[in-house]
Design a protein around this nucleic acid. Sequence first.
RNA 1: UGUCCGAUGGUGUAACUGGUAACACGUCUGACUCUGGAUCAGAAGAGUCCAGGUUCGAGCCCUGGUCGGACAGCCA
Length: 559
Amino acid sequence: MDAVKNKPTLNFIEAIIDADLAEGKNEGKVHTRFPPEPNGYLHIGHAKSICLNFGLAKKYNGLCNLRFDDTNPLTEEVEYIESIKNDIRWLGFGWEKREYYASDYFDTLFDYAVRLIKKGKAYVCALKAEEVNTMRGAPDKPGKESPYRNRSVEENMDLFARMRNGEFPDGSCTLRAKIDMTSPNIHLRDPIMYRIIHASHHRTGNKWCIYPTYDFTHGQSDSIEKITHSICTLEFEVHRTLYDWYIKELELFPPKQYEFARLNLTYTVLSKRKLIELVEGGYVSGWDDPRLPTITGLRRRGYTPEGIRNFCEHIGVTKRETVIDIEMLEYFIRDDLNKRANRVMAVINPLRVILTNYPEDQLEEMEAVNNPEDQGAGTRKVPFSRVIYIERDDFNENPSKDFFRLAPGREVRLRYSYIIKYENVVKDEKTGEIKELHCSFDPESKSGMAGSKRKVKGVIHWVSVKQAISADVRLYDRLFAKPFPDEADEGKDFKSNLNPDSLKVKTCYIEPSVQGTKSLTHYQFERVGYFCVDNDSTEEKPVFNRTVTLKDSWQKKKQ
RNA sequence: UGUCCGAUGGUGUAACUGGUAACACGUCUGACUCUGGAUCAGAAGAGUCCAGGUUCGAGCCCUGGUCGGACAGCCA
């Protein structure tokens, strides 16, 4: 009964693996791979794939390779390889020595191509790119056969060798598989296997001037690595038949491909092309801009690997194309940070408060709990004196009945300190702006004292003006103002939906305990949100990035 | 008039070889609280795209539709 009840539900891929294992396929082995192309930075969508592939290997006691699909020297760069490896490691996954490159297989792939030529299953086609495209037909129209389709094996062998030798210019000819120009699946209409690109490759240098296409590379690479479950996104579903065709004609180990739906999130974009546009167009500060859904951006924003992994585990894996509410991601990062981030008091919109009955030169140290969720985190001392800052929002001259904070005639508790009472407000005579507040404190009410038992409805955070250190806070918000950025007005694109308030920089005042902390350290600014130290921090001017706000039911109520 | 894929509360996922829809996020109550945080308790919210059929019984099986997506790079 309990066993049934607690039976973990499987995603469709796990169900397939379970069945395969039950049938004794692949000698009981599970071998996956994560195959990025080194032409951009990884984002949260890749994290889903990474968690899936590495996660499956871990769950089934198998292995997961890292393989760079580097078949296009025109767009790929070493810079990306390092960032990709770095991001995967940061997410908590490793591939030991199994770091492979499709380019490692160029020789093998060339041999495979020769084998197909000899079988009469491939030919060198001298059609121009444009001609190839038009003759391919359309989804609902069959294609036409290339006039070069029936060249002899000898002629094809000779031509292919000459392609390799660099006798022909880029684009002059290609090697094509001879399949079926009338196939309802366009990918089977004599697909290109090799193209001529006189460019140096980041790994093979100038050894090659012909490069295999992704379609002629991916399946065989999986096969060479003995990948048992080749997991990819939905758009490759229609390619599967082609991969299977190559494998069958070449008589190679047959990996099985399964496709799942890629991740989509509200209020952001996850396409490489759009991300590049934002970075290169200067809409953000770079690939690691904390507003971007890139792994490096999320890391800088203060997201944790655990938070991201939990998110990936909970969104599931299916073939349905869906859009996940960004709130889900935010929930998982709050959930994780709540457990690990030390609390600290910081005031972002300061309002000066003078405690009129507190001695001018007195200084006290208040004991504060670092993390109520983690007793092991200990306590710290927070300096307290006559003049403090509180948040402007924590005072209201004309409060409603459900406002719990400071107001005329009311009291509030200063967290880890005294209960204070409103006395009067000082305003700018001309503008009417509130300059400062005069309050009195109750000496018997200090936290921990007998008199502190008194209940006050509100508790607010504060910082002693004299000891506070000032820092820049970067208040990040969602990158886009609309949940579906692509839904733009006529003639405009997703960039027109960028949120103009996605970043606000302010000076804030923080208790001195944060002095000198390392970058990427996570904090919760009590009652405000989670923040993390940015690498731009200096000794004189610390910089904090807001990861995510705290859930705020008062804020919600006001709206 | 093509091929392939998909369709379950607002969102995402689940429901063992058919037994009468569950979990998470979100929302709303309430309790508790020196974070209007966290936590705890509870509620509302779908009858599973539609129409037939098989069956004692269908989200699961069959038939036919509808809607949505992918595919026409010498990108991956």
